[in-house]
Amino acid sequence: MNIFRLAGDMTHLFSVLVLLLKIHTIKSCAGISLKTQELYAIVFATRYLDIFTNYISLYNTIMKLIFLGSSFSIVWYMRRHKIVRRSYDKDQDTFRHYFLMLPCLILALIINEKFTFREVMWTFSLYLEAVAILPQLVLLQRTRNIDNLTGQYVFLLGAYRAFYILNWIYRYFTEEHFVHWITWISGLVQTLLYADFFYYYFQSWKNNVKLELPA
């Protein structure tokens, strides 16, 4: 565990907590894409298949449980909670997210480190995570009116990705044989998707104006 990895995990954790806090306390999920949240739930479910069979550390197990629990409860809130679900921007959140899953699955079947069920599922989760933010970015651009918590949520998610790249660079120089093309390339693609958002986020922060994405 290095400082970049820890910073990445913490920003990831905070992003989820910010989102849950928003949903739980103000009973609103306005501006949040259910499509992206469903994809994250699938990402964690397929990645952590070995949660009870492959013990790494107490830290890892607890974090996995938090990510699984939070992603499924966010989906539950948005779909089932009688007050929260009313604030869902259903008409704006029209991204066909299921269409993202098939190419990711096919790619995972072709390009993987080892052709086993566990490994293909792990790889699938990496590819899917790389594109899972797309419905959320599309929704942000459509709604234009981005509240602070939603902006912070996406910012923290992007920061998590950036820290993970620093973590891989660090591990590459400090650990032997640490070369994982699949993880790195899908992680890099995912981080680049945030570049545009980051640009406007920092502009609004610098000029102290409300965050708004161009149409």
């Binding site: 995990d9 070995d50 492959n54 890892n60 974090m63 490994e119 650990e175 994982h180 993880t183």
Partner: peptide, 10 residues
């Protein structure tokens, strides 16, 4: 092996 290394991440 390399695989286990990458699987220690979240």
């Amino acid at each position: 092996s390399g695989q286990e290394e990458s699987h220690d991440e979240l």
